[in-house]
């Protein structure tokens, strides 16, 4: 499938900002399931973008702005040729040993209830892949997807107790549960082309990957209840949302911030089902 992505983030400030620093994780790496034909990150302000790489091997851009500006637009344009790999990630860059992804982080704290849930819903099986699929089906069934995050600083345990969360919360729930049953797991941010919805979204997608001996990293999307297909573009991965966040920034001055995000993920006609 050939997927076109156009994302525009517009920041407006009540007062001019004096300076800003951001770390962007908006540029995907290629793997066997995605060939990047085109990718551009641009800004309309007088800003410098310094490319780099983070701990997880994600491509980063450090964005530096100085001088008074009141408006900043960040544009990401991409074209990716994808193929279905049955959810298995191959040919990606791995900088860290797999065991690292057994770590619990503040956002992926499981809590007692989620732990016992994870044990219960995977109890019937021995094979790790089977257990992960059971876990995926259970979370997809039991946790509702909401547009808004379950709350500020929501961790997996809290979202689980509320029975609902945004796509990031669902990924955290899956990751915490998978780690609890001994599977290294990580957070993935990216884009999803949805056949069944309008073309325009205003938010990027997120899902999880878990490690299975012999197979490697396998994607699990608790929002759809299925493994990623050729409708997915994988951008960044980390222990949790914070590590893979598309933008983390700080600014000096500016007063109140107004954010306007538009995102379109479209598939090229004729490529569907390839």
């Amino acid at each position: 499938m050939r997927i076109h992505i156009h994302q525009s983030t517009q920041y407006a400030y009540d007062e001019p900002i004096r300076a800003a620093v951001q770390i962007l994780r908006t540029t995907p790496r290629p793997n066997d399931g995605q060939h990047i034909s085109l990718w551009r990150v641009e800004t309309d302000a007088d800003a410098r973008l310094k490319p780099g790489e983070d701990a997880f091997g994600n491509i980063t851009h450090a964005l530096y702005i100085d001088g008074a500006i009141q408006r900043l637009r960040l544009t990401v344009v991409g074209e990716v040729e994808t193929s279905d790999t049955g959810g298995v990630l191959r040919g990606g860059l791995e900088r860290l040993p797999v065991q690292v992804f057994l770590r619990e982080t503040p956002l992926t704290l499981a809590g007692v209830d989620l732990r016992s849930y994870a044990t219960d819903v995977t109890g019937g099986r021995h094979d790790r892949l089977d257990r992960l699929h059971d876990l995926l089906a259970a979370i997809h069934r039991d946790i509702a997807v909401s547009e808004e995050p379950a709350g500020q600083d929501t961790n997996a345990a809290k979202a689980f107790s509320q029975g609902q969360g945004c796509v990031q919360d669902l990924a955290h729930i899956f990751i915490s549960a998978a780690r609890h049953i001994g599977a290294p797991a990580r957070f993935v941010s990216g884009h999803l082309f949805r056949h069944d919805e309008e073309v325009a979204h205003n938010a990027a997608h997120a899902w999880a990957e878990a490690h299975v001996e012999g197979l490697g990293w396998v994607g699990f999307d608790p929002v759809t209840g299925a493994c990623p297909t050729d409708a997915y573009v994988r951008v960044a991965s980390a222990l949790d949302y914070l590590g893979a966040a598309p933008v983390r920034g700080a600014r000096f001055g500016g007063g109140k911030e107004h954010l306007d995000v538009s995102l379109s993920v479209a598939a090229e006609p004729g490529w569907r089902g390839q």
Partner: peptide, 17 residues
């Protein structure tokens, strides 16, 4: 043991390599 290091939050992944 490797897991003692890898799962320790004080092992800063940013410094690996």
């Amino acid at each position: 043991p490797a897991d003692l290091i890898y799962t320790n939050p004080q092992y800063r992944l940013e410094m690996v390599g």
